[in-house]
Design a protein around this nucleic acid. Structure first.
Length: 493
RNA sequence: GCUGCCAUCGUCUAGCGGUUUAGGACAUCGCCCUCUCAAGGCGAAGGUCACGGGUUCAAAUCCCGUUGGCAGCGCCA
């Protein structure tokens, strides 16, 4: 059995989107599962829309996602180089095979103008017949061609589609899909500018790069019969195809700007983890027998198979992605979350935010709040009160916990007592502090919450936050007492 | 319009003819835990398996048709 070789072949005409990532991911997983090779090829044959920036963005996104490629850009001395189609075009790779097609009468020169073609399409639509090229240039004589050329017309090369018969695509996911040759177009193989079209370049490269399996979105399924015809005409082995069902937006239409995030890097900015996005996307169109939801990357590599990919399209559900992100964060230790957070700060340019924050305290604070973090960007607002010298006393907290008629006097008592007693408290551990607070409640004959809440607000300025005594422990005696005194002076003088 | 693909709780899905009173996950709701918010535990609600015909002793599962959704129909990829 030959080794598996798969590729992801994006066109650099924009950012890397969710659908693209999913395609890249499934190819990557398949390669890893089969101990094969994952190839990245840049299909930059769209002269107008391809940009260098886009190449960089895609490469960066792939790197962030840790979808590493065995062959492709930025890797030296590769057998199948180059991996940019325009570089390959410069080497005459495509023209050579196009000429071969013409020589073998599988293709011909076409001199039709854009206007003529547009006309044809409109008529086909109006007459409710299949829209395709009518083949008027198929049998031009040498003389006719010469004349056209003299008129200054530059030809394209078209593939001559058989008028009869059917072609069968044997898709790994969908099984047999049949197409009637008559309905297939005499598609263009080489454009007038000498650049190959997608349907041709893709086939030539997949053949030359010895691609064994083509995994792609099913929006490509109608291209496949055309491509198979090229393989056959050139007498090449046809790779195995697998067409993945599309990922749709919440309204059931193709994912687009309207559905919010487009670029992968935007997910990174929001504070999603690479592994969460990967895990979530794997769930869209692939499943295990047990319907397992949470995977490590290793686990996914081990269990992935094309046969278990589904046929029906799925709708992107950001609520589930969010849950999964929290799930991944909860599985990390303090050091890991801290690292992730720092990476995120650097990436988003928010690193100044924590300039004055003590690293040791930050790690502890983050870990205390770990279960609440769903996105990396949640972290600052969850822990910032540990570091701000001027506690921001929330109006709502002050009103309900400090100043309501019912609780005012007890709150005052708790704070004043705590100010005195805590400054003499020897063991500032969470356990000891909790005992202190509970004893105070018993002593004063009130509910524990009537003691806990005022302390929480005095120390953090908020009603919600981490476990009170752990929070006090990591903040330290001096700061805790200081804050309590600030609160007394501010609200109870 | 033509061609192709698809169809199980709101969403992602398990299911490959009998073990299914259709299982899991997210979201929703309730209870428990509890110093708050989360997390966690337990539970509930939610599906006429799109519809209609077959085949079969037996169908979510196989076949046909209908309907609906989506995709493609470029000198874009």
């Amino acid at each position: 059995m030959t080794d598996v070789r798969v590729r992801f072949a994006p066109s650099p005409t924009g950012d890397l989107h969710i659908g693209g990532v999913r395609t890249a991911l499934f190819n990557w997983l398949f390669a890893k599962n089969k101990k094969g090779r994952f190839i990245l090829r840049i299909e930059d044959t769209d002269e107008i829309r391809s940009t260098e920036t886009s190449v960089k963005v895609i490469l960066n996104a792939m790197k962030w996602l840790k979808l590493d490629w065995d062959e492709g850009p930025d890797i030296e001395n590769l057998r199948y180089s180059p991996y940019y189609q325009m570089e390959r075009k410069e080497k005459g790779i495509y023209q050579k095979y196009a000429d071969e097609l013409v020589a073998k009468k599988f293709a011909y020169y076409c001199y039709c103008t854009l206007e003529e073609l547009d006309d044809m399409r409109k008529k086909a639509y109006a007459n409710k017949i299949p829209s395709k090229y009518d083949g008027r240039c198929r049998n031009l004589t040498l003389k006719q061609r010469e004349q056209k050329r003299n008129e200054g017309k530059i030809p394209v090369i078209r593939f001559k589609m058989p008028d009869t018969g059917i072609i069968v695509l044997n898709d790994i996911i969908r099984g047999e899909v049949k197409f009637n040759n008559f309905l297939l177009d005499d598609f263009i193989v080489i454009k007038a500018n000498g650049i190959p079209t997608y349907n041709f370049a893709c086939v030539v490269d997949d053949y030359l790069m010895e691609i064994t399996h083509v995994l792609r979105g099913d929006d490509h399924i109608s291209n496949t019969p055309k491509q198979i015809h090229i393989y056959n005409a050139l007498n090449w082995n046809v790779p195995k195809f697998a067409h993945l069902a599309m990922i749709l937006g919440s309204d059931g239409a193709r994912l687009s700007k309207r559905h919010g995030h487009m670029s992968v890097l935007e997910y990174r900015k929001e504070g999603y983890l690479q592994e969460a996005l990967i895990n979530y996307l794997a769930l869209l169109g692939w499943s295990t027998e047990t319907s397992q939801q949470v995977f490590t990357i290793e686990d996914m590599k081990q269990k992935f198979s094309i046969e278990r990919c589904g046929t029906s399209p799925s709708i992107f559900d950001s609520a589930k992605l969010l849950w999964l992100n929290g799930e991944k964060i909860r599985s990390k230790n303090p050091e890991q979350i801290y690292e992730l957070f720092i990476d995120w700060l650097n990436y988003t340019g928010n690193d100044k935010l924590i300039e004055c924050w003590d690293t040791k305290l930050l790690k502890k604070a983050i870990f205390l709040e770990r279960d609440k973090i769903r996105l990396l960007k949640d972290i600052p607002s969850l822990v910032d009160f540990f570091f701000t010298k001027d506690v921001d006393y929330k109006e709502d907290a002050v009103q309900t916990v400090f100043l309501s008629d019912k609780l005012k006097s007890i709150a005052k008592f708790v704070l004043i007592e705590s100010s005195i007693r805590l400054s003499n408290h020897q063991d500032f551990s969470a356990i000891s502090l909790e005992k202190y607070a509970r004893d105070l409640a018993i002593e004063k004959n009130v509910n524990t919450s009537q003691v806990f809440h005022p302390m929480r607000v005095a120390i953090s300025g908020r009603k919600q936050g981490p476990s009170l005594f752990h929070m006090m422990e990591i903040m330290g005696k001096e700061e805790v007492v200081r804050r309590i005194n600030v609160a007394i002076n501010k609200f109870f003088k």
